[in-house]
Nucleic acid binder design. Structure first.
Lengths: 218, 218
DNA sequence: TTTTTAATTGACCGGTCGGCCAGTTGACAC
DNA sequence: GTGTCAACTGGCCGACCGGTCAATTAAAAA
């Protein structure tokens, strides 16, 4: 679980062989190991020595490549953001604002979080750090989303008496908060029930609710 | 911010006076200081020495009263839960399940989080720890809420084709996730705008959306 | 080939952490 | 009073933390 999925830079070097160097792979191994540990236990609770062990690398090497624990964490955030932004932007640039686009975005975001629990933990850690840092890319993404909502409102596909921010943060929150407490919520149900079935029930219910509430009624 | 709001057990003892003892006040001072620090920086990032300083107490005394840092955190959680459960239970026991009860609960929960940012952070930390621990009281609360929803569904006040869990976790998530990222969200708006005004816009939008979506349509 | 650069190592450092312990002192029951 | 117990103190400890450094060596540049 906490062990890096990528091969060690120097996999169990058999005696005597000259050690090949691959700084790029080393960086990746460190980032992967650190990300898994940081998201699981938090940065404050993850000693660099542990990252080094999981990455198959010495502690000093981490400082060599990233300078400090803090800088390493920043780099991990940067990498995560890049992946996340790509997913979201691809959705929003697909077409003009419409009810259908909103629906697709909601389902896609839900599936995205469902498939990648690490992404959920990443967002939760961000909420904890709460440094108020809103990246430019991120702000752009929100603006884009809200612009799409306004388009759909102008076209009469979404009711116009709801602030776009409520619609955008609404569907994001409905998805994210579900997965933030997923494990605990599952305990409300019998052990025999398939968790993915509960997920599906929630998604379906929320879609009905949200998209009935979001369309105009005379 | 991090200093305990309650007076120190031995407030700047003026020379020579015999030191009065008040173990109950001491415990409270420690809990208050620790809670503020834990919620702000996290348990791993809060040294006991700092708690002692803020509480106006020696480090050893904390161990005397609570045994360990871990146990202190558990005690804080227990205290927080008690307060939270009281608020929620009072709402749900107010009357039979109805659309109006759901509306009141939603607004009350929103106001509760708005008035107490520490509560928001507490819940976010819980999501991070994710030990999957669901307290009996908490499970009861969910069951109670879902039972109320079913009553309202049976009475035809809520549409019956939505799983109760989606309605309950839905409105909780809409409120909580808003405040989890409140600071960041505010950066989307001009500096001149009153944050509480944005809160109000969001709440109003979400109420319209949620309660239009949640009622039956022929 | 020679020189330069950068990846990598292990030993090491000062500081801080959570926790312990021996001793002191107030509160309180008898 | 006097004995008992728990509240409270200051000093201490070993472990571990993030980070540094000089030395080694593979790889790239010359």
């Amino acid at each position: 679980m906490s062990v890096s999925p990528t091969p060690f830079p120097n996999p169990t070097s058999t005696e005597g062989e000259p050690k090949r160097r691959d700084p790029e792979a080393t960086r990746r191994a460190i980032l992967d190991a650190a990300e898994a540990l940081f998201l699981e236990h938090g940065m404050a609770d993850t000693p660099i020595s542990r990252i080094a062990r999981d990455a198959g690398v010495t502690k000093s090497l981490i400082h060599h490549h990233f300078g400090s624990k803090e800088a390493l964490w920043e780099e991990i955030k940067r990498r995560r953001f890049a992946g996340y932004f790509d997913v979201q932007r691809a959705l929003l640039e697909a077409g003009p604002g419409s009810l259908e686009l909103l629906r697709e975005s909601t389902i896609a975001f839900f599936r995205f979080l469902q498939a990648d629990p690490a992404a959920v933990r990443f967002m939760t850690w961000r909420a904890i750090e709460e440094d108020g840092l809103l990246l430019d890319q991120e702000a752009d993404l929100y603006e884009l989303g809200m612009a799409r909502v306004r388009e759909a409102q102008a076209a009469g596909e979404l009711r116009a008496d709801i602030a776009p921010i409520a619609i955008v943060k609404g569907f994001l929150g409905l998805c994210l908060s579900w997965f933030q407490t997923r494990k605990m919520t599952m305990r409300l149900f019998d052990d025999g029930v398939d968790p993915e079935e509960i997920d599906a029930q929630y998604l379906e219910g929320v879609l009905r609710l949200f998209f009935e509430g979001v369309i105009p009624h005379e």
